[in-house]
């Protein structure tokens, strides 16, 4: 594999990793506050649908993005209502919301656009266009002739949609919010020892709703990028398990932002390799493409099993908080 092909795979990895990373950070906020969220998939899917639909109707990707965030926030609100207000089972709520998104997006898409449960192809204004950084080459012919450093700059670093760069910025931002602000300290505390936060006179319910809300906004961005950046429109079940891979990445990263970046880049790389190559011939054995598909899940199970370091979730995760009387 030559240098340029490697760059192209890495370039594709970065794009594949973006929705994973944003969704993973979304889950990070929620789970650090003690609310398990296996509904990342559903929120992304709902956001992908509504953002593509609104972008198709209005021709504006920004209105699409807003609508996507709105759809995702609505799902977050239901999850919050079920798991915080009514102290229901957070896992069951997440499962239900995933199904709700899988069903309702197709039903409404068919009724709205009558194109077999998809939205129309998005035109130029309805998508996140690649941002060409200053001095970068754009055509593949020019890039093929340039020197290695120029190739690296033009192929890998330049030419992504805005959400890709935003996602990379979200990582230090998340770290800063969680570990350097008062809000972040309280948010982490509410996931470890909510009774202590309550004793200090801070609202556990309010904090948890805030975390679930942030999770909704981020999932909305992730879903919108999927439908208006990575692809040009919504198709049935287009998240294709990405929400679960993000969840896997979150565990893989042991609920830490910088590790989340590494995990998502790794899983994005696996996806990019699976897309570009089918079966990989290693000389001795041939690795079928299904191994690439399954690898994120297998790696996560190994991490969960505690064979490579221990993944310890926030202590109060998954438990509704009941005030002492």
């Amino acid at each position: 594999m030559d240098f340029l092909t490697t760059l192209q795979v890495l370039d594709s990895s970065l794009r594949q990793a973006t929705p994973l990373l944003i969704a993973c950070l979304a889950g990070l906020f929620s789970e650090r506050a003690g609310i398990f969220d296996i509904g990342l998939e559903g929120k992304m899917l709902a956001a992908a649908f509504l953002s593509a639909a609104i972008a198709a109707v209005t021709g504006s990707v920004w209105l699409g993005l807003l609508a996507g965030i709105g759809a995702s926030l609505l799902f977050s609100a239901i999850h919050g209502l079920a798991s915080i207000t009514f102290r229901g089972n957070q896992l069951i709520s997440g499962v239900a919301l995933n199904f709700l998104a899988a069903g309702i997006t197709v039903v409404i898409a068919q009724a709205w656009f009558a194109e077999g449960g998809r939205t129309p192809q998005l035109m130029a204004g309805g998508r996140f266009e690649p941002i060409v950084l200053p001095g970068a080459l754009t055509t593949s012919a020019e890039i093929a002739e340039a020197g290695p450093l120029m190739q690296l700059y033009s192929e890998l670093i330049s030419g992504h949609g805005l959400p890709v760069y935003a996602a990379l910025l979200f990582v230090p931002l998340t770290w800063w919010v969680l570990f350097r602000t008062r809000f972040g300290l309280r948010l982490r505390a509410v996931g470890e020892a909510p009774e202590a936060v309550d004793t200090a006179g801070i609202s556990v319910i309010g904090l948890r709703f805030a975390a679930v809300g942030i999770c909704g906004v981020l999932c909305g961005i992730a879903g919108a990028y999927l439908a208006t950046g990575l692809q040009a429109g919504f198709t049935k079940d287009m998240t294709a398990g990405r929400g679960y891979i993000a969840l896997a990445a979150l565990i893989f990263a042991k609920w830490r932002p910088w590790y989340a970046l590494m995990a998502c880049l790794l899983f994005g790389f696996l996806q990019a390799v699976a897309i570009r190559f089918q079966n990989i011939d290693l000389g001795v054995i041939e690795v079928p493409v299904q191994v690439m598909d399954a690898l994120p899940y297998i790696l996560t199970v190994i991490i969960l099993a505690g064979f490579v370091g221990r993944a310890i979730p926030p202590r109060a995760g998954g438990q509704p908080y009941v005030k002492e009387r």
């Binding site: 209502l81 009514f86 499962v95 995933n98 899988a102 069903g103 309702i104 197709v106 039903v107 449960g117």
Partner: peptide
């Protein structure tokens, strides 16, 4: 003109109400 996925919606709502929002009805 109703997609088959409507059943998935009903299934989701049943899971939501009987599983997660149980207390909303119970209280």
């Amino acid at each position: 003109n109703i997609q088959r996925e409507l059943i998935v919606v009903i299934q989701a709502l049943v899971i939501l109400f009987t599983g997660a929002l149980d207390n909303m009805i119970r209280m």
